[in-house]
Amino acid sequence: MKYWPSLSDFMWVIAHDARDAEIDATDPLTAAAATGPRSSQADFLKALYAAIEDNSGGNFIKIPSGFRLTDNSIASLATCALDLEPDRPIDGAHIKRFRQRVRKAAKQG
């Protein structure tokens, strides 16, 4: 046991490594949900679209290829999933603007 570090030395090394760690998302769903400085409806929508894309392809227990939800359907789903107030739902126009912003950002960067 004399060659093993003390528990406090061991914990110090772990804390030091954690402080200097860089965290990267390992999948598109996590990246979409974690890119913003704070959570937002846009982060939720990015994660939702990433989940749909990740589960598309028509394979076993997957969303069929070519399956698309309308903007109004996505808006209804997001309003329910985010438990938004009935007088402040997300609408189809909001989803359309979101998709346009994502496309524009993809072209620029």
Rank of each mutant, 00 (worst) to 15 (best):
D24W: 14
P28M: 01
G58N: 06
L82M: 14
G36A: 15
A32L: 09
P64S: 12
I74Y: 07
K107H: 10
H16A: 05
K104T: 04
G58L: 10
A33T: 15
N55R: 06
S6Y: 03
I14S: 07
L82T: 09
N55V: 12
V13Y: 13
F60G: 06
F67I: 06
F10L: 07
G109D: 03
S65L: 05
A34L: 11
K62M: 15
P89Q: 09
V13H: 11
E53T: 10
E53R: 12
L82A: 12
S40I: 10
S39N: 12
S65N: 05
A105V: 02
R38F: 13
K2W: 00
F10P: 00
A93F: 08
I74G: 07
A105G: 08
R97L: 15
D87R: 05
P89F: 01
T70V: 07
M1N: 00
D91H: 06
F10S: 08
A106W: 02
T26Q: 10
L84R: 12
E85I: 00
D87S: 04
P64F: 12
M1S: 03
G57S: 13
A106Y: 03
D83R: 11
L77P: 02
S39G: 12
F67P: 00
I90Y: 03
L45K: 02
A105C: 02
A42S: 14
R68A: 15
K2S: 01
R38Y: 11
D17Q: 07
D20G: 05
Q100D: 14
N55E: 15
H16Q: 10
N55P: 09
L84Y: 12
I61A: 14
I14L: 06
D71M: 06
K46W: 10
L48F: 14
R101Q: 11
G66M: 03
Q100P: 04
P89H: 02
A32F: 02
R101C: 05
P64T: 13
L48D: 07
P28R: 01
S40N: 07
G109I: 06
T30L: 02
D87T: 03
A33C: 13
P37T: 07
S39I: 15
S6D: 09
E53S: 09
R97M: 13
T30Q: 04
G66F: 11
F10I: 02
T35A: 02
E85L: 00
A106I: 01
A93R: 01
T35V: 06
G92C: 05
H94V: 14
G92M: 04
N72K: 08
T79A: 00
I14R: 09
I90M: 02
Y3D: 09
L29E: 13
I63G: 04
T30K: 01
I90Q: 04
S76H: 10
I14W: 12
V102F: 00
S73Q: 15
D87K: 03
D24L: 10
H16F: 07
A42M: 06
K46S: 04
I95T: 08
T26A: 10
A18P: 00
A34S: 10
S56V: 08
N72M: 06
I14A: 09
M11A: 08
G58D: 11
A25P: 02
A34C: 13
S40G: 13
I90F: 04
A47T: 14
A75M: 08
A32Q: 08
L29A: 13
I74Q: 05
L82W: 12
